[in-house]
């Protein structure tokens, strides 16, 4: 499983375009909000938590539909399934790989997007934490969604339909945490709730993904 995660990371390092495009997408969407609602700083700061979360999740969705696609096409997914590794472990490794190659870069790009959106600087740390948790939640649900839609017609359209509703709680608590931090309140309870969702999803969603991978 460690080898699989390592392989994901090496693949991402050799093809940095995917990671880069997700990060660029995130920053660009965040930069679109000021044009949409006008550059008034107070309004932007009010919108920032939700806008950050929503654009980060959309950006993290981008590479998901190819998560298993390439491997299913060249047959290495079948090899992996035959390797004796539990399918759930494969899915978990993939989710971890997705988070490392998409979630962490998004977290690193958060200050840029936060500056665009005029988020108070005291809230940046919480914003990075909250985005890290939210993207991890999206990674595990997304791995399950990608496994489910593997081989489906219009799989790329189906995937957001399946994954985004499940990510709503992450958006609610993630944005609440950033908002609390921005207005000088305690962000900890919201972050803990977000972490609780991750703690619940991280062991369960790979099971579903593994069952879907074994599927046929």
């Amino acid at each position: 499983m460690r080898a699989l995660v390592g392989r994901e990371l090496r693949l991402a390092l050799r093809h940095p375009a995917d990671t880069l495009s997700a990060v660029l997408f995130f920053v660009l969407v965040a930069a679109l909000f000021p044009f949409g609602v006008g550059p008034s700083p107070e309004l932007l700061a009010r919108l920032a938590p939700g806008a950050l979360l929503a654009s980060a999740l959309l950006a993290a969705l981008l590479p998901l539909d190819r998560l298993f696609g390439a491997e299913a096409e060249d047959g290495s997914l079948d090899q992996l399934l035959l390797s004796g590794l539990h399918p759930a472990a494969i899915a978990a490794a993939k989710a971890l790989g997705h988070w490392c190659t998409t979630g962490i870069p998004l977290v690193l790009a958060t200050p840029v997007a936060a500056a665009f959106l005029n988020l108070p600087i005291e809230a940046w740390g919480v914003a990075m934490l909250s985005l890290g948790l939210a993207s991890a939640i999206l990674s595990v649900f997304g791995a399950a969604g990608a496994a489910l839609t593997l081989g489906a017609r219009r799989g790329g359209v189906l995937l957001p339909l399946l994954v985004l509703p499940l990510a709503i709680p992450a958006v609610i608590f993630g944005a609440a945490a950033i908002e609390a931090a921005a207005s000088g309140l305690e962000a900890r309870p919201y972050l803990l709730l977000e972490a609780a969702i991750l703690a619940l999803a991280a062991p369960l969603a790979p099971l579903a993904a593994g069952a879907a991978l074994r599927g046929d």
């Binding site: 489910l148 839609t149 489906a152 017609r153 189906l158 339909l161 399946l162 369960l204 579903a208 046929d216």
Partner: peptide
Amino acid sequence: GHVALVRAFDDPERGARMGAILALV
């Protein structure tokens, strides 16, 4: 999502399997 997923596969059995997993999630 279940409606769309079940009907998205050429092989109806695979669609049913995937839909079942989604329903349980």
